[in-house]
């Protein structure tokens, strides 16, 4: 499961020497549901061209974090800046239109709609003209989805549904793609394929925030990583730093 040498080409380093623009800057974000405070001053940043891994165990607050960033959960304190603009508290339609798009956890496709309709809905916030071009591009990336385009999404296999969910997000022309546990519940070979795809998408210029529990594989891919515990970021750094950390090793790699 660890040998990804053939499928995953590894992190791209071809970002030229230009100063890296910060796409997303989250500062001391707090949010929660009702009386429950889930996020406790979590901070994170993503620069253009990066793959960032957001790691942490179940219930650490990862999904709440990205849902707050995407405007699906109301932030309580803290600030979210997107390409230099303050988007704290903006509604999700606006955030999606700005190019910050997430693939929700658990392959949430629209089961009764056709694969094609699922994809088309991905460009809901884009013009009709862009839609056709995006569709062609996505079907090019996922030939499997083209084969199954008239089929209802609920009949796809787990891996295909995950591809569809990613393809659907790509239809919205993301600048930063947020993937919430894309490997969840998939067979190891499909997971390999998934990580290979993420690397390819990144090489084509897409910035990626990868939320994962699959620490080993995520770290092979990511330029930098953040570790969350109890709603706060407890560690951040690049791959080598993280792998060198005793704390992370103890918590996630069981060594």
């Amino acid at each position: 499961m660890n040998s990804n040498a053939t499928t995953a080409p590894g992190p791209s380093t071809g970002m030229s020497g230009a100063p890296e623009e910060t796409l997303l800057a989250v500062q001391d974000l707090c949010s929660g549901y009702g009386p429950v405070e889930v996020l406790r001053e979590a901070s994170l940043s993503v620069r253009r061209g990066e793959i960032i891994a957001l790691l942490g165990s179940n219930g650490a607050g990862k999904s709440t974090f990205i849902n707050t960033v995407c405007g699906l959960v109301q932030p309580r304190r803290g600030a979210i800046a997107w390409m230099g603009r303050d988007i704290t508290g903006s509604a999700s339609p606006e955030i999606v239109a700005a190019g910050l798009i997430q693939v929700p956890e658990g392959r949430r496709v629209f089961p009764n709609l056709s694969v094609l309709d699922n994809l088309i809905l991905g460009s809901y916030r884009r013009g009709r003209g862009a839609r056709t071009a995006n569709l062609e591009r996505v079907l090019e990336t996922f030939p499997r989805l083209r084969e199954r385009s008239r089929q209802s999404a609920g009949t796809l296999s787990g891996g295909e549904q995950q591809m569809l969910a990613i393809g659907r997000a790509l239809m919205g022309e993301p600048v930063l793609l947020i993937l919430d546990e894309p490997s969840l519940g998939l067979a190891p070979v499909i997971v390999e394929e998934m990580f290979g795809l993420i690397a390819r998408l990144n090489q084509s210029g897409l910035s990626i925030l990868l939320v994962e529990q699959n620490v080993a594989q995520s770290l092979e891919l990511a330029h930098r990583a953040y570790v969350m515990e109890n709603g706060a970021v407890v560690f951040s750094g690049n791959r080598t730093e993280l792998l060198a950390s005793d704390r992370l090793r103890r918590a996630y790699l069981g060594a």
Binding site: L72, S92, P93, V96, L121, Y124, A165, A169
Partner: peptide
């Protein structure tokens, strides 16, 4: 219509629809 597509998406999976920017 586009409205109906959004409605069908919300019916099928509201959270996923919201993630795509559908109100």
């Amino acid at each position: 219509s586009r409205f109906g597509a959004a409605l069908a998406a919300v019916r099928d999976n509201e959270d996923a629809a919201r993630a795509l920017g559908i109100d």
